[in-house]
């Protein structure tokens, strides 16, 4: 659907190769219609096995991945990511979900996804998110930011703490603003920093979320049956 618009794109923009993984065909076609011309959909899949095959064949830059998928061992999107772990260097995963249950979201993030958005996101919103992920940045929805604040606590770190276990004061500020519904641009304006700096902070938070074995985080996750 969007393939027709490539010629008029000015040529200076690279097109991002994307695979869409979702078990609902209606949602896939809706998503294809929504994604703008900077994005090239090179494959689709509706189950864990199909997704693994298509991703291995196409080696896309970004995989738009539904959290809930049939097939495989029942692990859904998380299983797709962990079985494609060897490609995480070249392929980024952006999780999509109708569910905003913490267990679903945090599980895919900890498996290696670069971000999470809800399926009610707007067309331009999802395109921006794909491009951001393709550039190596992280995409946080307000709700994911809320989960992070919930898990890491809302007080800034002391110097004594392991750096993975707490968010810095700046990271907390960024997370708070995202949870309040600010876009990266608005966060940058509010904090008088550049968008690039915002992206750095968000990526750092994502890394902490993925790597931290902090007691509170594991406890938080265990309470929600995430581990």
């Amino acid at each position: 659907m969007n393939a027709a618009g490539t010629a008029g794109d000015g040529g200076n923009q690279r097109r991002i190769r994307v695979v869409v993984v979702d078990d609902h065909a209606i949602f896939r076609s809706g998503l294809k219609a929504d994604l703008d011309s900077r994005i090239d959909i090179v494959g689709e899949a509706g189950s864990v096995e199909e997704a693994l095959r298509v991703i291995a064949e196409q080696r896309p830059e970004v995989v738009l991945l539904d959290v809930h998928l049939p097939g495989g061992l029942g692990g859904g999107g998380r299983e797709v990511i962990s079985k494609s772990a060897h490609m995480l260097g070249s392929t980024s995963f952006l999780a999509l979900s109708v569910s905003d249950a913490a267990e679903d979201v945090v599980a895919v993030i900890r498996a290696g996804a670069r971000g999470y958005v809800t399926k009610t996101i707007s067309g331009p919103g999802i395109s921006d998110a794909v491009i951001r992920v393709a550039d190596g940045d992280a995409v946080f929805s307000p709700r994911l930011a809320g989960f992070v604040l919930d898990a890491f606590g809302t007080s800034p770190s002391d110097i004594a703490d392991d750096e993975l276990d707490r968010l810095s004061a700046r990271e907390l500020e960024v997370m708070r603003l995202i949870a309040r519904g600010y876009s990266y641009k608005e966060v940058a304006k509010e904090l008088f920093i550049s968008i690039k700096t915002v992206e750095t902070h968000v990526s750092a938070v994502l890394r902490k979320l993925q790597l931290s074995s902090r007691h509170e985080l594991t406890k938080w996750a265990a309470e929600r049956r995430l581990l």
């Binding site: 307000p142 604040l149 809302t154 708070r176 949870a179 309040r180 519904g181 600010y182």
Partner: peptide, 17 residues
């Protein structure tokens, strides 16, 4: 409309944007 509620020992804050 984005609503953010944060509650801690210090108190509660609500942001409506």
């Amino acid at each position: 409309v984005s609503v953010y509620l944060e509650t801690s020992d210090a108190g509660s804050e609500i942001f409506v944007k």
